[in-house]
């Protein structure tokens, strides 16, 4: 045994070199399973903490950018809100001056569509707000483009909305420029149209049609659509006005209910 240990001591360098290279060659020639296992263990011990740190830094950096973007947006919206508040105040003053009764205030409640029905074009939808969310029949439903419809039926947690594409949903409207009034109706056969608009009135293609607020259901000034076509048949008292709605009923995504605060 003595001669063996003394030989090992003398040839220590050689023994280490052989073992080290043997180990490297075994790993080089071993299958993917062995190499993968050794790689995984080494990765976990040496790289894992830095990988975690890198992903945390990356998340922090992206969140920091998002916060910067949101701060910019907030500043922008704050300015817009101030302008809006000034306009509201001015509107109140002007209304008071003209002797108008101020409209009831409302809050906008976002909602999600949970069901759609209709043939060809959706005309009735189910939303996830109900009586428990202060939703009531005939409250107005809008999206970012304009008027979408009204609440037709209310359950505890759900409500049925008649879209403007539902023949039973009629809206008292007026042409924004000429202030001519009429009723917005919808028929499957001819689409949306402005009814009861006398031929004496001045209306032109491209005019915006808004809610008039006269029906007592919809608040005044919500955009419904634009005039697409005007026919003025002889011997008829009213124009035949086709309306192009601003809301795409096939692509409804975000909706809001105007919940009146009485």
């Amino acid at each position: 045994m003595d001669w063996q240990s003394s030989w090992l001591k003398e040839k220590q360098t050689l023994v280490h070199t052989i073992i080290a290279f043997l180990l490297a060659f075994i790993l080089l020639l071993a299958g993917n399973n062995v190499a993968g296992f050794v790689g995984n263990v080494t990765n976990t011990v040496f790289y894992y903490p830095f990988n975690q740190l890198k992903s945390s830094l990356s998340i922090f950096s992206s969140k920091s950018k998002t916060i910067d973007d949101l701060n910019t947006k907030l500043a922008e919206l704050t300015v817009h809100l101030q302008l809006y508040n000034e306009i509201v105040e001015e509107n109140k003053r002007l209304r008071a001056l003209l002797g108008f009764i101020p409209p009831e205030s409302f809050r906008i409640v976002p909602t999600e569509i949970i069901g759609v029905s209709g043939t060809g074009i959706p005309n009735t939808i189910l939303i996830n707000l109900g009586a428990s969310d202060s939703v009531r029949v005939n409250q107005t439903v809008i999206n970012q483009s304009g008027l979408a419809g009204r609440i037709a039926q209310v359950m505890d947690d759900y409500s049925v909305v008649y879209l403007l594409s539902e023949p039973r949903c009629r809206v008292s409207a007026r042409v924004s420029n000429s202030r001519e009034q009429g009723i917005i109706r919808y028929k499957m056969s001819r689409g949306m149209y402005l009814d009861n608009c006398p031929q004496q009135g001045e209306v032109t293609v491209g005019d915006t049609v808004i809610t008039s607020g006269l029906g007592g259901i919809f608040p005044e000034g919500i955009v419904i659509g634009t005039i697409e076509k005007i026919d003025s048949p002889e011997k008829e008292f009213f124009h035949d006005i086709t309306i192009k709605p601003v809301v795409n009923f096939n692509g409804l995504d975000e909706l809001y209910v105007l919940v009146w605060e009485r």
Binding site: F25, N32, A35, N43, F46, Y47
Partner: peptide, 12 residues
């Protein structure tokens, strides 16, 4: 270990 398909090459 980042690329186990070459495991052993850099060791050598």
């Amino acid at each position: 270990c980042i690329d186990p398909s070459h495991m052993g090459v850099q060791m050598i």
